[in-house]
Amino acid sequence: MNEVHAGVCGPHMNGYVLAKKILRVKTRLEQLTLIDGKRLTAVYFGQLYQERIARAYNKKVHPRYFEVGQLVLKCILPHQKEAKGKFAPNWQGPYLIKEVLSKGALHLTDVERKITGIIVNADTVKRYYT
């Protein structure tokens, strides 16, 4: 109220307009304090939503573990020269896992151990059953 009387919020005015201005300023301050609470609840519900979506997604994810000596097929990616069209095969192999590297990388070798040095992501291979 002192700021309104001092003229910080505008020039000095008659009683009715001054009372109305004091109410307007007071309601703005109340709204600003309510905004923080609304913002916190929005963040809280956003986090709950993200957790719920992650739980629903992770239900369907099955981690695959590979071991040295397993046979796998390697996916032929579209940018490789082996991808020659619609009727070309989608998988190459079988390959033998020579080493399991960190963060899902695999070091593959040919079954006859002629071709070595193939390092691929574990997402691009699938288990080969004989």
Rank of each mutant, 00 (worst) to 15 (best):
M1I: 13
V4R: 07
C9S: 15
G10C: 07
G10H: 04
P11F: 02
H12N: 09
H12G: 15
M13W: 03
Y16W: 10
V17I: 13
L18N: 05
L18F: 04
L18W: 02
A19W: 09
K20F: 09
I22N: 04
R28M: 11
T33W: 06
T33I: 07
L34M: 13
L40R: 06
A42L: 15
V43F: 06
Y49F: 08
Q50R: 13
Q50F: 09
R52E: 14
I53S: 06
A54F: 04
N58P: 05
K59R: 13
V61I: 11
P63I: 03
Y65V: 12
F66G: 00
F66K: 00
F66R: 02
F66W: 12
G69N: 06
G69Y: 02
G69P: 06
G69D: 11
K74Q: 03
P78G: 01
H79Y: 09
K84P: 12
G85L: 03
G85F: 06
G85P: 09
F87M: 15
A88F: 04
P89V: 08
Q92I: 01
G93Q: 01
P94L: 05
K98V: 08
E99P: 02
V100I: 08
V100T: 07
L101E: 15
L101Q: 15
S102K: 08
G104H: 08
G104A: 05
L106Y: 01
L106N: 00
R113M: 11
G117E: 02
G117T: 01
I118V: 14
D123H: 05
T124H: 01
V125D: 01
R127G: 10
R127T: 08
Y129F: 14
T130W: 10
